[in-house]
Design a protein around this nucleic acid. Structure first.
Lengths: 237, 237
DNA sequence: CAGTGGTCTAGACCACCGA
DNA sequence: CGGTGGTCTAGACCACTGC
């Protein structure tokens, strides 16, 4: 847990707390000027905090009327990028991974393009079975450039890759995902404890840091009876 | 096209233009103070515009160094809620719809919960085949509360429902989507010009306005060989 | 009409980067 | 060190809501 440092972060946390504990959906918050005075900050700072809560969907601001607590439970929080591990945590399950293949390969032109490398560059290929409470959920093929993460193949690969990345000073900021569906092959079905031909979700993801540097390319097959995507998308940008 | 009214919107558009036309990824923008002076606005306003572009992934700000154009093409634009019609437009295809069923039904408890109605309330059920350039892409079942949209069943239902909504003063602000996969049934396969058992993407969506009022519930089956989801998700928030 | 949120300003100080 | 972005302020005016 990192503590908030800026005033608006503190304010945000405080308001979140207040909303969760004292208020119910539909309740009005204090006006911006009132909040500013009560908390000893400027109105601009209050607004910045409220902007944040608005973006999170916790509050609704109505021009000329006031600021209200929204139906938080109706607004899925997901739209946020999460790792498989976080994902399972949120569902109250324990994430695990069994490493099936861990090998150093040389990027073909296709992979090199995705990861912005020269073709032939060294890449760790990591094939893992992802588990939730010991149950197979997904089959994952990750490709990680060794140029960025030298020696990563020696680390513990049964947990979140994102955690390992941060040991090298890289943080995943965003990811581009492509979601399709496909029938399970015989091998996939065997590993996922299912039957061949069953429809499954196939997700290809390229994760990047804040500067757009690709950190990994992952292809994952999810058992669609055990996993689905829950996303909230917004219109205004 | 609606024209921008506020200064920061104008600024945003101007900067977007400049980035697209004069600059390439990696180029530095003018400093915030320089921009403010050049454009005759305050620095706060400049920052607000830059915040916007940052959120869109068009620029990268580096503390102590400067603001730079990011690799725009690597950052998928989608994360924005789009209607099928918009979606097809963006891909350069012409969207169409063939109405298969249009009937008034009474909400069962399940549907009533999703749409926040009392069970038994009147709802328009609209089953449509969605087309792109005449080719079947998806099969859609939409449920629209007639209490909010009286007489909507008399309107042109071969285009975007979202457009009809705005005629009633409602705008879709966000939607909660659940993405799974399923095998095509015989009926679905027939309509989609495919074969039964083929894996397809199944999306359930509840669209809401800014206040969280549910406007429609839609279940859609996409031919996964012709359609996939392309989304960019972000970590920070 | 008074009170709300929305926009905008001019100026201050801090933290960080690179020469 | 100077220049950059990041945070914060006090105060102004506008647009909208609801009585």
């Amino acid at each position: 847990m990192r503590s908030a440092v800026t005033k608006y972060e503190v304010l945000c946390d405080g308001l979140r707390q207040e909303i969760r504990s004292k208020l119910v959906p539909g309740d009005a918050l204090d006006g911006e000027r009132t909040l500013a005075e009560r908390l000893g900050v400027s109105r601009v700072t209050v607004r910045r905090a409220l902007d944040q809560l608005d973006a999170e969907g916790l509050i609704v601001r109505v021009h000329g009327s006031g600021t209200y607590v929204s139906d938080a439970q109706l607004i899925g929080k997901t739209l946020r990028l999460t790792s498989f591990t976080d994902d399972m945590c949120e569902r109250g399950l324990e994430a695990g991974a069994a490493v099936l293949i861990s090998e150093v390969i040389y990027a073909d032109t296709d992979l090199a393009t995705f990861l912005r490398l020269e073709s032939g560059a060294e890449v760790l290929r990591l094939r893992r079975l992802r588990l939730a409470n010991e149950t197979p959920m997904a089959l994952e093929d990750a490709f990680v450039p060794l140029g960025l993460f030298p020696g990563i193949e020696e680390r513990d690969l049964t947990t979140s890759l994102y955690a390992s990345f941060s040991a090298y000073g890289y943080t995943v900021d965003r990811a581009r995902q492509q979601i399709t569906s496909a029938a399970l092959t015989e091998e996939e079905a065997k590993l996922l404890d299912s039957t061949p031909g069953t429809p499954a979700l196939r997700v290809e993801r390229v994760s990047m840091d804040r500067l757009g540097q690709p950190l990994e390319k992952v292809a994952t097959i999810y058992r669609s009876d055990r996993y689905h995507f829950d996303i909230t998308v917004r219109a205004h940008l």
